[in-house]
């Protein structure tokens, strides 16, 4: 379970995130929805302890990301934006390296890596160097790497970016299976269909603040509209300003990621 309370982060004069509170429960897929530059990536980065918040705190299964970042990291599997691999290592070696740094014993990480390679349909390229992988192969490898230590909580930053339809379907299937197994899944996206297709719970972020949180049905009800997209536009609009920050140039200066 992931709980955030009053997270704030400034980059120079720009407030990337101000007072974000949210909750992602076990056995549910929670979507972080918002236009580009709304503060989704910054929020996730604070949650997975790469950035410390200026104020506020978050707890992963009750462990504070500010007070005990190492303990919190043990309980998380993270797929950051971009998902860089080591080009001279094979997909399997990339995954095993992370297993080793998680402290898994050699035999255990080998079994687990083989398991994930099968689950994610990676057999074809598992023992090829990561140099020259397609975007889909890269995301799969990065995902396997994030799941090597069987984390209870899984955070994904725009995981479907650049994936083709087949790869998106594999990813969806995997996330649904992980939900069935009782994992807590939090992922960000600016693609409405994806959120609508997958999420049990939606957190709408705009201008660094939470504009609304609830099930898709609740959000539609609150905005008084039938389509989630319309609800999203209204909720974001109500949070102040319309979607003028849509597009890459809408990202605040100095703020890493959206």
């Amino acid at each position: 379970m992931i709980e955030a309370e009053g997270l704030s982060k400034r980059f120079g004069a720009v407030a990337a995130v101000s007072g974000v509170s949210l909750r992602a429960l076990d056995g549910r897929i929670t979507g972080l929805l918002g236009p580009n530059g709304a503060g989704k990536s910054t929020t996730l980065r604070i949650l997975y302890t790469v950035l410390p918040p200026d104020c506020g705190d978050a707890r992963i299964d009750g462990i504070s990301v500010v007070g005990e970042p190492l303990g919190a990291r043990r309980r998380m599997g993270v797929l950051p934006h971009g998902a860089g691999l080591y080009p001279n290592l094979t997909a399997r070696e990339n995954v095993l390296y992370f297993g080793a740094l998680h402290g898994l014993a050699r035999a255990e990480r080998r079994v687990r890596a083989a398991e994930l390679i099968k689950q994610l349909d990676m057999d074809e390229f598992a023992d090829r160097p990561a140099r020259g992988f397609s975007q889909g192969q890269r995301i799969k490898t990065a995902l396997a790497r994030a799941l090597i230590h069987r984390p209870r909580n899984i955070l994904l930053d725009e995981p479907t970016n650049g994936l083709d339809v087949m790869a998106v379907r594999t990813l969806r299937g995997l996330l649904q299976r992980l939900r069935e197994e009782g994992h807590c899944i939090l992922f960000s996206s600016h693609v409405m269909q994806e959120i609508a297709a997958l999420c049990d719970e939606v957190v709408v972020i705009a201008h660094g603040r939470v504009a609304a949180q609830g099930t898709p049905a609740e959000l539609r009800g609150r905005a008084g509209t039938e389509s989630l997209e319309e609800a999203f536009v209204r909720l974001v609009g109500a949070a102040g300003g319309a979607l003028e920050s849509e597009g890459p140039e809408g990202r605040p200066e100095g703020a890493p990621g959206g």
Partner: peptide, 17 residues
């Protein structure tokens, strides 16, 4: 090189000082 390839951020999410 690691930062440019984007493999630094995932590395920093590991439970390692």
């Amino acid at each position: 090189g690691e930062r440019e390839r984007g493999s630094l951020e995932p590395l920093l999410t590991l439970p390692v000082r």
